Amino acid sequence: MEAANQARIDVAEAKMKGEIGSKLRAGRTQQNAAKVDAETKIIATQRQGDGKKEEIKVMTEVKIYENHREAEVAEANADLAKKKAGWSMEAQVAEVEATKAVSLRDAELQIEVERMNALTTTEKLKAQLLSKASVQEANWELYRKQKAAEAILYEKEREAEAKKAAADAAFYSRQQVADGEFYAKRKEAEGLVAVAQAQGVYLRTLLDALGGNYAALRDYLMINGGLYREIAKINSDAVQGLQPKISIWTNGKGGVRNDGAGEGNAMEEVAGVYKMLPPLFKTVQEQTGMLPPPWMGSLTDSGNSNMK
């Protein structure tokens, strides 16, 4: 029984605790909800206030901008009005100045016309007064020009006569010079002819003296003219400074045959001639600088004169 009672007590306590906890949770939920609602209302009110402030601020800035623009427009209108007034004044001044300028120009032109009329009248009077004097002066000028022309013509005639005389004198002088040159050339030609004739007589006399021997006459003329002396001089100049080398060589056999038969062997003679060629070519090379043709062989650089 006690256990059952205790169980019922525990159940009742548990139920009571559950209901209390449920009530506590419900109360806390309501409290939290009320708190959230209050905070939400506060935030909403703040947001509305901030929005209102921003709206007022924007409207204020817009109004300020509109006022500024209106001031600028008013200032521009005032400047335009001032400029229009200045332009109107300048136009009026220009119109007045133009009118005055036209009047002044009209007066100046009138004065110029009067002056020209006065000058024209003066010139007419001068022409009338000086017409007779002008005719006389023109006649005098014509007379003076005629006399000047006659004087110039006289001077030209005298100048032409002087030039003609000078030309005649120059022609005569050139003719005399040409005659002198022609005479000199003729005398020179006559002298050459005389010399040629004298030389012909001289050669004929020599040829007759030599009995008509042309070879003897040629030799005599060459000797008399010093031709052989010139030839000897040229030859001596040609060999001057040369140092000829004289070489003497033998074949080393003394003319004895290998078999003791003497000089009757023709092959030994040919061999002797062939052995004589190297020293001969060597001597020619030393004295003249000329080498034998390739088909005859070539000289070596050794001390003895051999041919390859």
Rank of each mutant, 00 (worst) to 15 (best):
D50M: 11
G18D: 15
E112L: 10
A216C: 01
K41N: 06
T122Y: 05
E70T: 14
G241S: 07
G18R: 08
A3Y: 11
V273Y: 10
E159L: 12
G191N: 10
A7D: 13
A148I: 04
D301H: 00
L119V: 12
A74K: 04
Q285M: 14
K53F: 08
N139D: 12
Y183D: 09
Q92M: 07
Q31D: 14
G260W: 01
T45I: 10
D79E: 12
G212L: 03
D168P: 00
K245N: 11
N32I: 03
K84M: 13
K253W: 03
T121F: 04
V239R: 12
E39W: 04
V177P: 00
S22K: 04
Y183M: 13
I43T: 05
L125F: 09
E54C: 06
N32W: 00
Y202Q: 14
A196G: 09
N213A: 08
V96L: 12
L277Q: 03
Q92I: 03
M16A: 14
G255P: 00
G264C: 03
K147A: 10
E97K: 07
D168I: 11
K53R: 14
A74Y: 00
K23E: 06
K41L: 08
D301Q: 08
N251K: 02
L203W: 05
E72G: 00
E150C: 05
G212W: 01
V177W: 07
A149W: 01
E95Q: 07
N251F: 01
S302I: 01
M222L: 13
Q6I: 14
K275W: 02
V58W: 01
Y228L: 15
N224L: 11
G303D: 12
I223W: 09
E150V: 04
I56N: 09
L130N: 08
D259V: 01
A165G: 10
A162S: 06
K282N: 09
L153T: 07
E263F: 05
E181V: 15
D79L: 13
K233D: 06
D179S: 15
I43R: 15
G262T: 00
A133Q: 13
G303P: 02
A196H: 03
